[in-house]
Design a protein around this nucleic acid. Structure first.
Length: 237
DNA sequence: CCTGGGACATGCAGATTTCC
DNA sequence: GGAAATCTGCATGTCCCAGG
């Protein structure tokens, strides 16, 4: 995905509410921006970090700018906008650039399933004789130490646990079910379940994988004006 | 001390209304 | 009648305050 307008650079003062962060711009002015992240943003919201903002150009919004990227440990870019990984995956699916997903399929966003929704469903042409594939995308942005190992989740997640169960049920019903870790963080080259953060989730993950739910991880390439899904990276379960 | 609820901002889907 | 515009509800984690 490419941003329509150039990103604006600043420094984080503080993320002080779920949706809000204060940023200092290059000219010294301070603004409040929308923080579009549903997680704890562990290690991604350190005061004084360099940050990049997108301009919504939307006059109806209370806060014109949206926090997109942060610089972690003064060297790695990471994307904190949780809507982006979903888009990156969608683009890659539509471009047929993920080798694990082949065949003549249509991409359905946010398909409804039993008790909620998942991120994507791939519906195959009749000739393919294949039941749908379900995909849930998770964003990985927690690098605990500078060792290339990304951790998920970054906080206890009851909801994430539910998604795992949902994928397992779909798999048991005969569908392909895939958990796709999208990793928009330049310092992460592999992913593992964070059992030190959410042991229940880590346990459930290894369990559903054992039962046949697939897990994939893809790194993300940053360029001056956007991001693209890059290549597969290993997942340690 | 613990729990519950509200506020916070946005994007999106789905429903409903309006308008030609 | 059908398209477009508008509304409604949901999802989401953190923080703070009130009440038990």
């Amino acid at each position: 995905m490419q941003y329509e307008l150039p990103l604006i650079e600043g420094r984080l003062i503080k993320r002080y509410k779920r949706f809000l962060a204060d940023i200092r711009l290059a000219d010294g002015s301070e603004i409040t921006v929308h923080c579009p992240n549903t997680g704890s943003m562990k290690r991604c919201a350190e005061p004084d970090s360099r940050v990049w903002l997108s301009d919504s150009a939307n006059p109806k919004r209370k806060y014109q700018f949206t926090w997109e990227w942060v610089e972690v440990d003064q060297k790695y870019k990471a994307c904190v906008n949780t809507a982006r990984p979903n888009r990156l995956v969608e683009e890659a699916l539509l471009a047929r650039s993920i080798p694990q997903f082949t065949g003549d399929y249509q991409v359905v966003r946010e398909p409804k399933v039993e008790d909620g929704r998942l991120d994507f469903r791939l519906d195959f042409a009749p000739a393919e004789g294949q039941t749908p594939t379900y995909i849930e995308v998770k964003s990985v942005t927690l690098l605990e130490q500078d060792n290339g190992l990304g951790c998920f989740p970054d906080a206890v997640t009851a909801r994430g646990l539910k998604h795992l169960q949902r994928l397992l049920v779909l798999h048991q019903e005969g569908h392909r079910a895939v958990l796709l870790f999208c990793v928009p963080h330049e310092g992460i080259q592999r992913v593992r379940a964070a059992d030190h953060i959410d042991p229940a989730y880590a346990k459930a993950l290894s369990e559903v994988v054992k039962q046949g739910v697939e897990v994939l991880a893809y790194s993300v390439k940053f360029d001056h004006a956007g991001m693209t899904l890059l290549n597969e990276i290993p997942v340690d379960i």
